[in-house]
Design a protein around this nucleic acid. Structure first.
Lengths: 166, 166
DNA sequence: TATTGTTATACTCTATAACTATA
DNA sequence: TATAGTTATAGAGTATAACAATA
């Protein structure tokens, strides 16, 4: 077996992306859990609700799309947030199947406290890169994300054909 | 609330990294599950064992370090791999606490089949970037990884001090 | 019939602690 | 006492399916 035939896991992009994202998520998750007793999915829901005007609200489906959390998990995270009195939910006026979810005053307070924390953590992480490098990373990661979405959207047989192993 | 005070989740690096890594992992996980009935942690263990010479072996602790999977999860993934007859484990000769884990012939066959699949998938993903851009991404992500590790290694109080919110 | 959302099930991940065997 | 590894427990993530209410 020659040198280049050995598979180096730590040079493999799916692995590297997972290790980095997991380390970042876990560090942030610990911060949020310690200070606000909320999980990452709960934080993401608060984050999208916090951007709304006072009279606005989102449905579960909209929250799912905006947070990349699936419907079932949104439903469960919302149950916890309701229990903690951080969100309220009403019923859609025209379509009574849809929920109208928004932050309570208590939820808004958490939002206002957690956003500076999220930004400060991100700033600390990104000190590793110069501003121009951050823009480069932004561009490259956006293209990778688009490619990953394109591959994931294919039927399984087409993925198999694409990677030439069927 | 002015425009820039609104927190945009989809511009937040911890979120972006997580979404990308998760999408990639899930797509790959489905491929591996369909063809080899193995999970991502199992694949990673096979990947590091596959790089060994015939007479070499790794301990559980070494596997844990090389795969970024914690001891407990390594133990459980190894139990599944033993059950599937993909690995064997002996006992260290000098230190009988340590395991000596290596691939079975069947495990080596899986390794030889799955590595081209992993490489082909990665190649498809990385078609989004030109070779020079891949090198740039490599460099930037390595620096981010180092910074994330540096932050995660700090005691909680120091992280709090670092992000100036205590 | 299709969609919104909840509930059920099952498996994996993650973290912690307790435990054993050995050093 | 410390380390390698396993087992137990519990909370959270993930995927699927079934279901109720509504459209």
């Amino acid at each position: 077996m020659t040198e280049q035939d050995i598979f180096a896991l730590n040079r493999h992009w799916p692995y590297r992306l997972h290790v980095l994202a997991t380390l970042v998520s876990q560090t942030v998750a610990t911060l949020y859990a310690d200070r606000f007793s909320i999980t990452i999915p709960e934080w993401r829901i608060i984050a999208v609700l916090g951007g709304l005007d006072e009279d606005e609200a989102l449905s579960g489906t909209a929250i799912s799309a905006l947070t990349a959390i699936d419907r079932v998990q949104v439903s469960r995270a919302m149950a916890r947030l309701l229990d903690a009195d951080l969100i309220v939910r009403g019923t859609g006026q025209t379509d009574r199947r849809t929920a109208r979810v928004s932050l309570t005053p208590k939820g808004r307070t958490v939002y206002q406290q957690i956003v500076p924390l999220a930004r400060a953590f991100e700033a600390q992480l990104m000190t590793a890169l110069a501003p121009a490098e951050r823009e480069t990373l932004d561009r490259l990661v956006s293209r990778l994300q688009a490619q990953a979405e394109a591959i994931a959207a294919l039927p399984k047989e087409e993925i198999a054909a694409l990677i030439g192993t069927d």
